[in-house]
């Protein structure tokens, strides 16, 4: 019995046709090489680790990573659970797609919310960087420790940020989840050494070598389901600290802000999806994948520009976060 629910539509068939034509050409395309590399990495982890897990954030990179996992182990379902480290501040559309994808892939979905952050009512408006620290960094560490996962797949890419560019595909963390950039294991050819000492864990980045454009093109060719927020539509928005945000839950926003923000309907979309108050929207009319890719290619700002997280602590924001245990 096929454990998968096929995402059967015209688009898939067309994409499938394109991919299989390519396999007969003698030189693999860059996307085929990237796909083969990611699949190889995932199978190595499953063969070598005791208890792997896939971090699933519901964004486009997670979507591609999940699709690659389904390919890597087909016809078996991927032999590890999905872990969503939830901040309770994700967009509604993201929660919906998350549950749907877990069902379709036949994988167990684990959702973890840091109880301390919940109790203290940590939110992005009042607590700034503490929001990321408590919900995401601490939440992730707690979830990994709780379940005893020794290897966690993450959808980070080297083109995203400068310190990511120097991170290994198999990135070792101490028992306290710290990253030591000066003491990384040499990683030669496609030989990955996943042996670790007691208490250590590995973060594995199978799509390290993909760029933003590769991700989009792969989504298009493979009809990978993504959150509709990546496409432009008329949505309720408000401005806060000079950036444009979407009002996904007006009641909650009002409670936290102490006032009702001024809501305007605008045609917007997101280049990257995080917590809804932390991820800035862009005004856009791109409603199809082609248009989204077109906009991505012609834009003059980088993808993470809408993310508040990289801007703390000067040029070393991400490196510092990673040393503290951020994935």
């Amino acid at each position: 019995m096929d454990p998968m629910c096929p995402i059967g539509n015209a688009r898939t068939l067309q994409a499938r046709d394109k991919m299989s034509r390519q396999t007969r050409s003698t030189i693999l395309t860059h996307l085929e090489r990237l796909e083969a590399e990611a699949i190889h990495i995932m199978r190595e982890v499953v063969a070598q680790a005791e208890k792997p897990v896939m971090l699933y954030s519901v964004g486009k990179d997670s979507a591609v990573m999940l699709h690659l996992a389904r390919k890597a182990f087909y016809p078996s379902p991927p032999p590890f659970p999905l872990l969503h480290v939830d901040t309770t501040w994700k967009f509604k559309d993201m929660y919906a797609l998350r549950d749907k994808m877990a069902r379709e892939s036949g994988m167990e979905l684990l959702v973890y919310q840091n109880p301390e952050a919940a109790e203290r009512g940590i939110n992005p408006f009042d607590h700034g960087p503490l929001h990321t620290d408590m919900w995401k960094t601490e939440g992730l560490k707690q979830a990994l420790d709780l379940h005893g996962f020794d290897a966690a797949f993450g959808g980070a890419r080297r083109d995203e940020e400068k310190s990511r560019a120097k991170e290994r595909i198999f990135s070792f963390r101490t028992a306290s989840h710290g990253w030591d950039p000066k003491n990384q294991r040499p990683e030669l050819w496609n030989l990955y050494n996943a042996r670790k000492n007691k208490g250590e864990s590995i973060r594995v980045f199978p799509i390290s070598n993909w760029t933003e454009l590769d991700i989009w093109q792969y989504i298009q060719l493979n009809a990978v389901p993504i959150v509709p927020l990546y496409f432009a539509a008329l949505r309720p928005t408000f401005e806060w600290e000079g950036q444009l945000f979407m009002a996904d839950d007006i009641d909650r926003l009002t409670r936290v802000l102490g006032r009702t923000p001024e809501i305007t309907e605008r045609s917007i979309r997101f280049r990257t999806l995080g917590c809804f108050p932390l991820t800035g929207a862009v005004e856009s009319t791109a409603q199809t994948l082609s248009e989204v890719i077109q906009e991505t290619l012609l834009t003059t700002t980088s993808e993470r520009q809408g993310r508040v997280i990289d801007k703390d602590a000067g040029g070393a924001g991400m490196e510092k976060k990673k040393q503290e245990g951020y994935f």
Partner: peptide, 24 residues
């Protein structure tokens, strides 16, 4: 400065580790 990604590299003006970059 674009490619030296680690704080120590930018401070010391040297490249310590392999960095991977992408272009088309």
């Amino acid at each position: 400065l674009l490619v030296d990604g680690l704080a120590a590299e930018r401070e010391q003006g040297i490249t310590i580790d392999v960095a991977y970059r992408f272009f088309n």
